[in-house]
C-alpha cells in the first residue's frame, strides 16, 4: 500500500515539476496567456470546464483512495465474504443528477460563446481580409484597400477584423493561439471568423490542419499595431511603385535576375490579385523568410538555391531555372530592400 501511494505521489511531483519548468509557454504563441477576444472567450471556458471537471476528479480520487485503504483484503480475511449489495437507488440517483447539473453549468456559457464568436452580421462595417491558404504559405488580400501581401498580416489593435478564408489546395487551419482559436480553411466554402487583438505585438500563427510534408513549417505572423500605425501602413502599401529601381548596383542586378528567371510568373510585387506564389511587395519588412527562418541574407540565399531542403514538398522547387550563387545573392539583396513602409514588425514591439 505504502509503495503504491509513494509512487503515485512521486509521479505527481515529477509532472508538476515539468509543468512549472515549462511555464505557460512562449509569450504571443501560447493560448494560456490570451491577448485577444477569441482567445479570451476560449480561455474562460477552459478555466470553467477545468474547475468543474477537477471537482469531479477530486471526488472520484477521494472515494477511490478511501475504498482501497479501508477495503483491501487483510491478513486473516482470506475467507471473508462481503455482503452482496445489489445497488442503492438514492446513491445512484445522486451520481446521475449531479453530473447533469454540472454539464448544464458548462453547456449554457458554451452555447452563448459559440453564437457570439460566429456572429458576422456587422462584418461589412469592419476591416475585411480575404485569406487564401496554400501549401505552405498564406495569402492576405485586403480587398477594400486593394493591398495584397503574404505571411505577415497587419491588423489594428482594439478592432474586430473579419477574415474570409478559402484554400487553394488542401484543408488548412488558421490558428493564432494568443489571439483566437482556430478555424479551418477549406477548399469549397469561405469560412468567416473575426479576430481582435487587445495589445500591440507580433503574434505567432500556425497551420493546424495536417496539409502535407511541410505542415509544421507553415507559420505566419499577425502583427497588431495601433490604429494610427495601421492607417500609415495601408497608405504606404497603397503607394508602392513596383517598378522603382533599387539604389545600388547589386540590387539592380537582382531585379534584372528576378525578371529573367521567371520569378514574376508567380510572385507579384505591388498590388495584384494573382497569387500563385507569395506576394513580395513588402518582403524586406517581413519577420521571417519562408515563414520560419530569420530574415537574414544567408537564409534567403539558401532558400533561393534549394528550397526543397528547407521546406519539403513546396511548390517553388523546380519551377524556375537553377540559380548561380551570384544570381541568388543579387536577388536576395533586391528582395530584402523591398521595404515600402516604416511600419514593420518592430513597430509592434517584440
Amino acid at each position: 500500500m505504502k509503495g503504491w501511494m509513494g509512487k503515485f505521489k512521486s509521479l505527481f511531483l515529477l509532472t508538476s515539476l515539468a509543468i512549472i519548468l515549462a511555464g505557460c509557454g512562449r509569450e504571443n504563441l501560447t493560448a494560456l496567456v490570451p491577448k485577444g477576444y477569441g482567445a479570451e472567450s476560449s480561455m474562460n471556458l477552459i478555466i470553467l470546464s477545468t474547475i468543474v471537471m477537477t471537482f469531479v476528479l477530486v471526488i472520484v480520487i477521494i472515494v477511490y483512495v478511501i475504498a482501497l485503504i479501508r477495503f483491501r483484503r487483510k491478513k486473516g480475511q482470506e475467507n471473508f465474504i462481503p455482503k452482496q449489495v445489489e445497488g442503492n437507488k438514492t446513491l445512484e440517483t445522486v451520481w446521475t443528477v449531479i453530473p447533469i447539473i454540472l454539464v448544464l453549468i458548462l453547456a449554457v456559457p458554451t452555447v452563448a460563446a459559440t453564437f457570439d464568436l460566429a456572429d458576422d452580421t456587422n462584418a461589412s462595417e469592419h476591416i475585411n481580409i480575404d485569406i487564401t491558404g496554400n501549401q505552405y504559405w498564406w495569402h492576405f488580400d485586403y480587398a477594400n484597400e486593394e493591398i495584397q501581401t503574404s505571411q505577415d498580416i497587419y491588423i489594428p489593435t482594439g478592432e474586430k477584423v473579419y477574415l474570409n478564408m478559402l484554400s487553394s489546395d488542401v484543408i488548412h487551419s488558421f490558428w493564432v493561439p494568443s489571439i483566437s482559436g482556430k478555424m479551418d480553411v477549406n477548399p469549397e466554402n469561405v469560412n468567416t471568423m473575426y479576430i481582435e487583438a487587445y495589445e500591440e505585438g507580433v503574434y505567432w500563427g500556425k497551420c493546424a490542419e495536417f496539409c502535407g510534408p511541410s505542415h509544421s513549417l507553415m507559420d505566419f505572423k499577425v502583427i497588431a499595431v495601433s490604429p494610427e500605425e495601421y492607417e500609415q501602413w495601408v497608405g504606404d502599401m497603397q503607394s508602392v511603385d513596383p517598378e522603382a529601381e533599387p539604389q545600388d548596383a547589386v540590387a539592380q542586378d537582382g531585379k534584372a535576375a528576378f525578371e529573367e528567371n521567371s520569378c514574376m510568373g508567380c510572385h507579384a510585387i505591388g498590388s495584384s490579385p494573382a497569387a500563385v506564389g507569395p506576394n513580395l511587395t513588402n518582403f524586406g519588412d517581413r519577420s521571417k523568410i519562408a515563414g520560419f527562418l530569420d530574415p537574414t541574407k544567408e537564409n534567403l540565399v539558401d532558400w533561393l538555391m534549394d528550397p526543397e531542403a528547407i521546406k519539403p514538398g513546396n511548390k517553388m522547387t523546380g519551377n524556375y531555372p537553377d540559380l548561380s550563387e551570384e544570381e541568388a545573392n543579387s536577388i536576395a539583396e533586391y528582395l530584402l530592400q523591398l521595404q515600402p513602409s516604416e511600419i514593420t514588425p518592430e513597430s509592434a514591439g517584440n
Binding site: L45, S49, T54, T114, G181, K182, A208, E209, F210
Partner: peptide, 17 residues
C-alpha cells in the same frame, strides 16, 4: 475530464488538432 473540456466547442477552437 478532458473529453468534456473538448466538448465545449469554443474551448475546442483552441484544443482542436
Amino acid at each position: 475530464m478532458t473529453g468534456v473540456m473538448l466538448g465545449s466547442s469554443v474551448a475546442d477552437y483552441q484544443y482542436h488538432d
